[in-house]
Design a protein around this nucleic acid. Sequence first.
DNA 1: CTGAAAGCGCTAACAC
DNA 2: GTGTTAGCGCTTTCAG
Lengths: 368, 368
Amino acid sequence: MHSGATAPPPADRAGWERRVADGPRIRVGRPTMNDVAARAGVGLKTVSRVVNGEPGVLPSTAALVRRAIDELGFRRNDSARQLRTGRTAGIGLVLEDVADPFYSLLTGAVEEVAHAHGSLLFSASSQDDPRLEAEMALALCARRVDGLIIVPAAQDHGYLAPEVDAGLAMVFADRPPVNLAADTVLVDNAAGARQGVAHLLGHGHRRIGYLGDSARIYTSEQRLLGYRAAMAEAAAPVDESWITLGAPEPHLVRSTLSRLLGPGAHSPVTALFTANNRVTVAVLRELARRSRAGPDEPGPALVGFDDFELADLLSPAVTVVAQDPVGLGRTSAELLFARLSGQDAPPRTVTLPTVLVQRGSGEVPPRA
Amino acid sequence: MHSGATAPPPADRAGWERRVADGPRIRVGRPTMNDVAARAGVGLKTVSRVVNGEPGVLPSTAALVRRAIDELGFRRNDSARQLRTGRTAGIGLVLEDVADPFYSLLTGAVEEVAHAHGSLLFSASSQDDPRLEAEMALALCARRVDGLIIVPAAQDHGYLAPEVDAGLAMVFADRPPVNLAADTVLVDNAAGARQGVAHLLGHGHRRIGYLGDSARIYTSEQRLLGYRAAMAEAAAPVDESWITLGAPEPHLVRSTLSRLLGPGAHSPVTALFTANNRVTVAVLRELARRSRAGPDEPGPALVGFDDFELADLLSPAVTVVAQDPVGLGRTSAELLFARLSGQDAPPRTVTLPTVLVQRGSGEVPPRA
DNA sequence: CTGAAAGCGCTAACAC
DNA sequence: GTGTTAGCGCTTTCAG
């Protein structure tokens, strides 16, 4: 109708079509439902009905509208919609680092559940920095995500209380919140570590080194408790020098291992328990370097917390206490959507079990 | 209606505070700038100024406002803001699967760049399904993300033309778009594969098997071209039965390898080129199984396309043609933000180089 | 079956 | 310095 041969450009409302200097008609901005309504010669509300698949529109009218939509390349503006409805159909995920295999599996599982519920996923990494966690979580709140899953880095989640009070669904994954009541999904870190260490003890080891993360992190703390519990149960004394906590920097791992294993260690260990993925890999790399460099003596027994790809292809294959990052992500997301569908109960905590996977590195006896 | 005790509920404006049956005052919904303004005894615009750090507010007034904000637990509604400003401060990423290590590294890099630009990241997995890709991409468009990075699964991206026309910034990563002009960041797949295969040829191999993805995928096709180019250059004839394309299912890999390597193969190969991560791992796993089961003959030489963690710890360590997923993600995101900051030029294609990493598996001669 | 009017919470443009 | 008004694009409510 508009865009006739000679007729002047439509002057009515701020045009999303505009003439550009000696160019053809070019789209600027985006067409709105109003534009579609005008083009189809129907009312605004009718367009809304068609776009949202609401009943009560004559098929012929609907066809008219759909044609206008296609011609104009209209796409509903979900921000405007959300402003009215209050629902985003989006959830947020804050974790340490998406690039970490453990968290990327978790992310994938969350995303899958979100998709099944028609939601999109906002993800943000905290780099394990409490301030970044808060920045990210609050940014997601400002977008009015429907729900939030957090793998916390912070030691205090009071800052989220206003959000929870305002009705935001929230689930903590892998580590519990501090100073806040919310649904939580954990892994049984203490029991897992205890089982792993008991496994080494069962194979005759009494002197077992422990390499873990900073004790500041909840999971790390729990795993260390598990180690101590297993040792205590077996009445195996623990030399505190066997315990090392901190980031798995290659040179630190190197000095730690030469302290624990020799040469020249005044109380060498015969087995190692590595308390996470990254530590395990760093230790394996250093053990490989040592065996290439030094005499060909057999390495220590080793059990790692957390499974990783190719653990089965190394020689020896690596025995691990496996967590289930996919289950963790799925459970967290399901809890979240249960809340979103109106389920109202006191906050729950779900604890997922671990599984000991015997592959070889943990089943060797102490060397003579 | 409200089940109050006796007094009628406050009738002023739709209260975000409301009395609940025999409970204390409880927040319902969320406070708005208007609520903050009322509480602080200032005008709406003043609150807006404080929230957005705009100048021209008396420090004392600002303090008043900030106190009201804290008391009310106010958080700006970014959807409303966006409806006005037209900017989301969010970008979208559509890829095959966040849980895949290659893509999770890419995602991490994109997220980092986004954060540096004050943007949040929406991520969505397509499972390599064209329809899902479109669904996800369009959902992100409906949210009016400022820009979109796509690792395409579809064979036709015409459906995105209206978005591009409307001014949405868009970058394709890892694979080029079809029927659409847009910035693209690729890896030099053909050259990388060619170099990897030439490396095997240089070590005396003439009979080299190729195991790759479905030829439908751009990267897979390019790598196969690289294989053929290297073989042709060395005047090494290619037996088409050496080439297998498809998903790396364990039992398929098993039958492929027994066909290529024997026992009983009528034209066994002495080396393998595996064209991606997942194929490489599947092949390694099968080779390990074979060497456990069968006679202790040395395995074939092997070069894989795409690096993976622990490749250096296997024995033999695995020689690979390494791509740079982090560089791919970073470059794509930087291109996107360059567009968003108004840079206007014809679509560009950036191609990133690969690096051959020699570790052992690719440097063994053909067995007699 | 269809449409007109109001308003979600915010910011831009302009008063005061 | 501060407040007032209008309106972003949509859904809700209610009238035809």
